[in-house]
């Protein structure tokens, strides 16, 4: 579906060094899968999406979409893909039905075909009763569904979604996820960017984590969690005391053999050292461990009892933060 090798995008900046938004990305997206691009703001997700959507030319590297070279066949590729941009990009002065009409015409479709598909797509987007309403009267969730439905007007085999659920309330997100599942079931290949980890876990078969314009890691959500994280995370809150000091004391338990088993072999111990660790947050400690309950029991045992404790499953969010750091990016 998509094959990218060494994709680069640099923007010239006045008088200074050119700005590199994407710095050598490799991607392979297979037909029928849902593929995710994850990364913090400014990581290069949207730029990558724009290159895949053939609206932005790569500065270097090769990019093949649907077996066609993106540098040569941009218009032909665009004719067969669907694009849902980050901010919906709808014609807000026009009505819902007019949006389909105008968009379909951009693809050169005839009026009859457009009318037929519009009826079907409005049904799909649960907007059948809104056909004659102006787009600027729709809610955020409706607009997003409309943007997705509109992207289907040319019956694309590949749909690109840039942060499809950003800014939506939980209900709207779930409706949207369900619609995306339906598309996938129908065999449409989906590529989406997101920084909601639950969304990536819900939707994506495979994903890449991007940071600083580069792929940091790739795999299925499960693989990534297993590779970079323990099975569980124990969150510890303390009412008083220095968190750094507490962390060091909690950490003291890490190297020791747990009461449930013998001392792990040196190799395992090393692997655990990477994954099993204690992180200090401003308000709490995160104890990454494969067995949260046992670790908590151990902490109680060592008289380090926290004010509150929570054992939860490790999520893609933990992987994401482990890979891209906690520093705020703007």
């Amino acid at each position: 579906m998509i094959e990218a090798r060494g994709l680069f995008k640099r923007y010239p900046s006045r008088g200074g060094e050119p700005f590199t938004a994407v710095a050598g990305i490799d991607l392979d997206v297979r037909p029928g899968e849902c593929f995710g691009l994850l990364g913090p703001n400014g990581a290069g997700k949207s730029t990558t999406m724009r290159m895949i959507g053939c609206v932005s030319r790569p500065t270097a590297g090769s990019l093949s979409i649907l077996g066609l070279d993106a540098a040569v066949h941009g218009a032909a590729i665009r004719a067969r893909i669907g694009v849902v941009p980050q901010d919906d990009a709808l014609d807000s002065e026009l009505t819902v039905a007019e949006n389909f009409l105008v968009y379909g015409r951009y693809f050169g479709l005839g009026k009859r075909v457009i009318r037929e598909r519009t009826t079907r797509l409005l049904e799909f987007a649960q907007l059948a009763d809104k056909a004659d309403q102006r787009v600027d009267t729709l809610s955020g969730g409706m607009r997003r569904r409309l943007a997705i439905a509109r992207a289907m007007i040319n019956e694309p085999v590949l749909v690109l979604l840039d942060e499809p659920t950003t800014g939506l309330d939980p209900q709207a997100r779930h409706v949207l996820w369900e619609r995306l599942f339906r598309l996938k079931r129908e065999g449409v290949t989906l590529v989406l960017t997101t920084h909601y980890m639950d969304e990536a876990e819900q939707l994506c078969d495979r994903l890449v984590v991007i940071d600083g314009g580069q792929v940091v890691d790739a795999g299925t959500p499960r693989e990534l969690i297993e590779r970079h994280c323990t099975r569980e995370v124990l969150e510890l809150r303390y009412d008083s005391g220095d968190l750094a000091d507490l962390a060091a004391r909690v950490r003291g338990g890490l190297a020791q053999p747990t009461e449930t088993g013998a001392a792990p072999s040196p190799g395992v111990q090393q692997a655990l050292a990477v994954r099993e660790r204690v992180e200090i947050l401003p308000d709490r400690l995160l104890y990454y461990t494969d067995d949260g309950e046992a670790a908590l029991a151990d902490i109680h045992h060592r008289a380090l009892s926290p004010a509150t404790a929570l054992v939860r499953r490790a999520t893609l969010e933990d992987v994401f933060l482990a890979l891209t750091g906690r520093t705020l990016v703007d």
């Binding site: 032909a76 015409r105 050169g108």
Partner: peptide, 29 residues
Amino acid sequence: LTLTAVAPAPAHRRHVGPAAAVVGRNLLV
């Protein structure tokens, strides 16, 4: 390496020319 053999796009006849589609949109507005 995932080689995807997708048939080249069928030569599809445009019912509306690209520039005419832009004019159509503007007239609608």
